[in-house]
Design a binder for these strands. Structure first.
Lengths: 112, 112
DNA sequence: TCGATGCTGAAGTATCGGCTTCAGCAATGG
DNA sequence: CCATTGCTGAAGCCGATACTTCAGCATCGA
């Protein structure tokens, strides 16, 4: 598997699903095998594998198969992609508030 | 509509959809009416209204109807919810790396 | 070597979610 | 007061997707 794209597009979609979010939460603590992930989730290995594929495409997770065990670990860059998107939204949002502030300040001018 | 829940659960689901993400991006710049949002998106007013309902439930957006116009604006708290979730994941992730570091440090001990 | 373990691929099902249409209603403005 | 504008509710369509089962295959360990 080559390295993934890291578009916020995919990251948000990946985290939109509760099961995948749960997986990411587990993976943020330590790497897990497919079956280790499946256990607590109460889904089949196949389901987990499918979710892992999505997570991997999003760039949030990296997996590596050694012998018959595939180990998945969190990829920090994925989180950064998210953070960047949020930061940008917040910047625009604050600019918006600033403009509003300026407008209100103009009330200092005499209206008549 | 009373105030929303602010669970990361809902926020991620809300942002998982491309159309809603586009709406949030527009709203981060300035508030918009339902029809103002609909225009560039090429969807019906109904669709936008449905998306707004989801966004509002997630706490990302607040809307207010004045006369016949409903105005939607971004709610900063929603973004914070996201940021917190990410921060927590990152914290766990780094703890994981730290533990790994300690393990490797033990190589300093004589092996024989 | 043989059974158990861990995973994978293909294929099908069923639920969900995004979208539309249509019919209506309230506010606006000339 | 009437036409226009802006939105809403109900209902239905359809494609996406989360999940399953089943049949394999490779690896590991005794």
């Amino acid at each position: 598997m080559p390295r993934a794209k890291l578009r916020p597009e995919r990251v948000f979609h990946a985290l939109g699903d509760p099961t995948r979010r749960a997986m990411v939460e587990r993976l943020s603590e330590r790497p897990h095998s497919v079956s280790a992930l499946a256990g607590p989730l109460g889904v089949t290995l196949t389901a987990v594998a499918q979710h892992l594929a999505v997570l991997e495409e999003s760039g949030l997770v990296r997996t590596e198969k050694i012998g018959r065990v595939r180990t998945a670990r969190l990829e920090a860059a994925g989180l950064s992609t998210l953070e960047q998107w949020i930061k940008q939204r917040r910047t625009h949002f604050e600019r918006q508030l600033d403009r509003l502030g300026e407008l209100l300040d103009e009330d200092d001018d005499p209206l008549v």
